[in-house]
């Protein structure tokens, strides 16, 4: 990110209310993650210790410090979705995308990116679309009443061409 662009973003938050989170969210949306050099620059500009920005970035699940895949597949792990079979969707997505995670994180947070950097698989707490549980989101599009069988056809809409492995 160009320093000038960062200035523009900072300029959008003239009052202290909601400022720091707002700026970080803006960078996250624009870059897909919070790059270290941008955080360093921001810390300097706002006269904050870098450690404070780091602690914010790691506390809130909206922020990531690593680049995400070109497409982000987010499975809702909320109560309604859990009851309606979200764990099966995760298993199916892992299989189709060829990513692994260990069992202990089965309903915690996870962030898995395919080797080619095309897809990141992650979880969310609830999209507020609980009536359509189980729900998943690819980039900004929400899909409801998802079954493991429907997953390949959903992924294909985003250019997926079959198992990566």
């Amino acid at each position: 990110m160009e320093p000038q662009r960062l200035e523009e973003i900072i300029g959008r938050y003239p009052t202290p209310t909601g400022k720091i989170l707002g700026i970080l969210e803006h960078i996250q949306r624009e870059m897909g993650y919070l790059p270290k050099d941008v955080l360093k620059l921001l810390a300097k500009r706002l006269e904050l210790p870098l450690s404070e920005l780091y602690s914010i970035a790691t506390f809130y699940s909206f922020f990531t410090l690593e680049a995400l895949g070109r497409h982000v597949v987010t499975v809702c792990m909320g109560t309604a979705c859990h009851v309606k079979g979200a764990p099966e969707l995760v298993a199916s997505l892992k299989h189709h995308l060829g990513v692994e995670m260990d069992e202990t994180t089965r309903d915690g947070k996870f962030l898995l990116t395919t080797d080619d950097g095309e897809y990141t698989l992650t979880s969310a707490r609830c999209f507020g679309a609980c009536s359509m549980a189980p729900v998943l989101r690819v980039d900004n599009k929400i899909f409801g009443y998802v079954t493991p069988e429907r997953i390949p056809s959903i992924l294909k809409q985003f250019g997926w061409e079959g198992n990566h492995h």
């Binding site: 209310t17 909601g18 989170l21 970080l24 506390f59 809130y60 699940s61 909206f62």
Partner: peptide, 9 residues
Amino acid sequence: TIAEGAGAF
């Protein structure tokens, strides 16, 4: 004004 949360229950 609106302030946005960032994903922490």
